[in-house]
Nucleic acid binder design. Sequence first.
DNA 1: TAATCAAATGATCACGTGTGCATTTTTCAG
DNA 2: CTGAAAAATGCACACGTGATCATTTGATTA
Lengths: 328, 328
Amino acid sequence: MARTFVTAEEVAKRAGVSRSAVSRTFTPGASVSKAVRRKVLKAAGELGYRVNRLAQVLNNDRSNLIGVVGANLSSPFISKQLDLLSIGLLRQGKQCLLLNAADARQDIAPLIELLFEFRAQAIVVLSGEPPGSIVDECIANGVRLILINQRLDRTDTNMVLSDDSHGADLAALRLIKANCRKVAVVTSGSQTPAQLRRANAFTQRMQAEGVEVVAWSGGPTSYESGLQAGRELLADKAIDGAFCVTDLLALGFLDAARLEMNRRVPQDISILGFDDIPQAGWKSYELTTVAQSFESLTEKVLSALDSDDLETRLQVVPVTLVERQTAR
Amino acid sequence: MARTFVTAEEVAKRAGVSRSAVSRTFTPGASVSKAVRRKVLKAAGELGYRVNRLAQVLNNDRSNLIGVVGANLSSPFISKQLDLLSIGLLRQGKQCLLLNAADARQDIAPLIELLFEFRAQAIVVLSGEPPGSIVDECIANGVRLILINQRLDRTDTNMVLSDDSHGADLAALRLIKANCRKVAVVTSGSQTPAQLRRANAFTQRMQAEGVEVVAWSGGPTSYESGLQAGRELLADKAIDGAFCVTDLLALGFLDAARLEMNRRVPQDISILGFDDIPQAGWKSYELTTVAQSFESLTEKVLSALDSDDLETRLQVVPVTLVERQTAR
DNA sequence: TAATCAAATGATCACGTGTGCATTTTTCAG
DNA sequence: CTGAAAAATGCACACGTGATCATTTGATTA
């Protein structure tokens, strides 16, 4: 028990060849005769030999390890993202070193430093904002850094993000079309940059159109926070529209409106979300929402990882309004 | 650009000490004088030195890498599991190497072999059944294998699973209490062992009580499959109870019943689920369900990883019935 | 001060690979 | 059959670290 792994040396001895031959057998494009290759593969199979990738990296320096940092991994939005990303990475022959930031407010710098120690080739940040010093360090060490839905004010980092402000604009126009006179904009208490961009763009547009806007903010980015928002905001009978910057918030708000605050949706109030998580399409909700394309986001991230051009730094993915049943 | 990482050698040179001193500075419990440690830390800080964990592993053989294999990472159940697990691993100072099996039916053997190459200390399987040969290989190489909600017929593997049959029993008793006369049991087409255990235990109990049971199976484990099940099954007006072996299925079934097949829940039909995912508690559903304790499951896994006793192989975590509004 | 002992230090080895280099074997054309 | 080119092979080095060991430094006691 607790035996150690088989080494190339042992395989070589058993096959009656040099260790180099073993190494070459498992190195594509290397020069080995058929006969030797066969002997090596036979011995390797019998012993259960596996190349030690950690030792490989030592003189290869291509670790194929991609660090992924994120929080709230069980939220529908992030988990979908992680799902697609991890599938794509595997397809690219890369491995996914996952670090959970647990709390979204937690500083992710220590996690990224940990990834440095593992010589990660690149780091994908699903949520949380890396401090500038860390970004510098990534560049200094040749580690590619890719931020999702995070906009940093620098030109030396890869950023892939949905078109938040345009999405917020779509939401605003939709509520105007629904003839709303007084609308709520709901964000979570964590106030991520993406949420702020959406809320601000929305508010700006609505006010430009002369519609009164009430802002609400609180709690984590969750269904429960949306519920709470609905309970508090809908004490005001005048509110006839709401833009929740996240679907989770919107679904909670929707339930509060219909089931607790006695509103008919969309007759009495129009409710819009953002993200288009699977639950938004469930029959009990049929939420009208601004859809991010998870597939496009992931595709951009993967291509940024794969290609060697460091040109296209900022990639904005278009969003679309998905009409369902919660807007008049 | 694409500069390489700083090595201990360079730090030593800058600090005017030997490389050994650098190594010792970063090795807890090693013998270094205050003065040298200070010089080393200063130089390391200036150069941005990070220990190379991959090189460490080479003569340490404690990689601290834990392989995690799973499919459907964006499903509420699996993602919650992964969330808790990755947090716990980080807290234990271990790293999480995530491999996404994409399709639940996919053979996970190649993924586990890949983890061998990275010298993973242990492997946690969230979903999918590893072939026996792989299990043998894990043991031969001293890699601890931990299966979640997967019961293998061998005594040399760690298994952590919820008490499926008891849970199914709870569900059966609840439907009997609701005076159901003809009930449906819904599984997905993937028919995982866990799903089968639940369905079988349920069916057995119901039939023992003289209640007629109709089985339905199809599609992936998803909301949509539950919807489909509801549409097809509820053409039969006699069905007055349903046990869906997964909450996702149950929520789809519930929506089909109420919104498409014109049933009142729970007056006309009682619907039970299994898992207790967050959505089950949402106000629009209020699903009565058998709850798995995500926390307990994760805790067992983590302790199995941490401790060195290989005694307790099979750990069964109790389940509880959560009463909400979908059972009469 | 001298003797004893603990602490600190540097050189060296081991970990498991891939690869450059020199050498040997095989292939092929004349 | 011979000579040249090509392919295959083994040796040795490098990758970056932790640990062992002998040696040196510093502190403590008589």
